[in-house]
Design a protein around this nucleic acid. Structure first.
Length: 281
DNA sequence: AATGAAGCCAACCGCCCAAGG
DNA sequence: CCCTTGGGCGGTTGGCTTCAT
């Protein structure tokens, strides 16, 4: 008995999202918040799988997303976190405000990986390439021996500071691919500088998001914007975060239906003035 | 200008896990 | 417990864009 598909495949549209679909999804979520994703397409009038809607929202439409390339500081943080966490992109993304796991994963695969290789660093182990090769050879030669794979949770070094890592793995020898990748990072953990205050601070806080989660209640967020419009933007909706709106050059705010989010014309006008939305059309 | 290669990234797929009945 | 369901995650794909020839 196979698992039921996440949605009825018949009549479900795939491929790139159109502006019209985006608009519908944004309108729906701004009006109703995030609810059961399976129900979203039906309620929002979309011929999409719920999963697809969730992905589209979290990876592209979410208001707190930063757009554009990762800054140097972000890139460095990604590298550091990757050294600690391995390919757990969602965990890494949780510590980069406004970035998605998908975005970081893509950036890693297309930019950072190459950069590290160019620098002679193995992107998997974060070791100098020569050393990494030697270790690989060594492991190969040891294949005939009993290899005890030490899970991250038992590492007495850096992992000890992270409750997340402590919880991450309890079985020691199963061989799923994801666990393999986790184990690869073990090498890194042993060499990681646990005295790095920035990283330790980040990791000790476990999953405490750096991102203000208020975007989940978008209407409230818009209230914040309005209330702070004479001062500075709130942390969750700073100017940069809002560029995504401005990037949507094909639509004005009315096209997105955001105007429904404002309690009065005055509020809408304040918003338009601040972000020059009125001139966008 | 034409064409093929390489790069990039949004989106999909399939697996896993937690929650609830 | 067992089963079902929904949501999340990481890996992969496919198509568009840019670059090189």
């Amino acid at each position: 008995m196979g698992r039921q598909p996440c949605c009825d495949k018949l009549g479900v549209k795939k491929g790139p999202w159109t502006a019209e679909e985006d608009k519908k999804l944004i309108n729906f979520i701004l009006t109703n918040g995030q609810c059961c994703w399976r129900a979203v397409p039906k309620l929002a009038g979309l011929r999409r799988c719920g999963k697809s809607c969730r992905l589209r929202w979290t990876n592209y439409l979410r208001p707190d997303l930063k757009r554009g390339l990762l800054s140097e500081a972000e890139e460095k943080l990604v590298i550091d976190l990757h050294a600690r966490l391995g390919n757990r992109w969602s965990k890494i993304a949780a510590r980069l405000p406004g970035r998605t796991d998908n975005e970081i994963k893509n950036h890693w695969n297309t930019h950072i990986k190459k950069k590290l290789l160019k620098m002679g660093i193995d992107p998997v182990t974060h070791e100098p390439l020569n050393k990494a090769e030697n270790l690989a050879d060594q492991n190969k030669n040891n294949d005939h021996q009993l290899v005890v794979v030490v899970p991250e949770s038992t590492s007495v070094t850096a992992a000890a500071t992270s409750s997340e890592l402590e919880n991450s793995s309890t079985s020691s020898s199963s061989a799923s691919s994801s666990e393999n990748s986790c184990n690869e990072s073990k090498l890194v953990l042993d060499t990681f500088n646990e005295n790095d205050p920035l990283l330790n601070n980040l990791l000790e806080s476990d999953d405490t998001p750096l991102i203000d989660s208020s975007w989940e209640l978008p209407i409230k967020s818009f209230d914040n914007i309005i209330n702070n419009s004479n001062n500075h933007m709130t942390s969750s909706w700073d100017d940069e975060s809002f560029n995504w709106l401005l990037d949507c050059q094909d639509f004005g705010i009315h096209d997105f239906g955001f105007d429904n989010c404002f309690n009065s014309d005055v509020e809408l006008e304040v918003f338009n003035t601040k972000y020059d939305m009125g001139n966008k059309k």
